[in-house]
Amino acid sequence: MAQEDIDLIKAVTTQDPPLVKVELVNNFFDICRSMSLWPMTFGLACCAIEMMAVGMARFDIARYGAEVFRPSPRQCDLMIVAGTVSKKMAPCLVQLYEQMPAPRYVMALGNCAISGGPFYFEDQYGIVEGVDRLVPVDVYVPGCPPRPEGLLEGLFKIQEKMTGRRWWPMPKQGEAV
């Protein structure tokens, strides 16, 4: 069922051009940004439980400097869409995204945020089938829900996307990051 949703309004993504255009400076800024991605305190469904687990003692996203969950979108860099986006929630999500200041990144966490997941069936009427219909998504983390290691790997992928290199060693089979 790939019909276009006419009642969904996409986020405005226009950005001011950067003030400084020296490549070295920009690279430096990008590395610093990737090392302190502050996520938003924003959970929609069960994937948010995994997002909370990733901040706790066993997985500890703080090791990579991303544990500062800011309550205000003005101070966030990363929006983790953790869960099912209903059509009622879509305008709020778009508004939150638009309120974030410029270098901003979106992670779609879990199958619901990627494509609607288990709610993707004929004649469903209440669910947005993929958050990329609303906001541009940087990294998709599949799973239902993804394990906390998956979220960490998604964070590394965003860091890789920002700086052009992977910073942390690849995990061995069956080993935690």
């Binding site: 940004r33 090392m35 500890d60 703080a62 400097g65 410029a102 942390w168």
Partner: peptide, 27 residues
């Protein structure tokens, strides 16, 4: 019972620097 900032620089010592530069570079 977490290690806290750990990977950015030795024992995460460069973490506040990264935060400060990021805040300067924010819109």
């Amino acid at each position: 019972r977490r290690p806290g900032p750990y990977e950015v620089g030795p024992w995460g010592l460069l973490q506040p620097v990264a935060d400060a530069v990021k805040l300067v570079g924010k819109q």
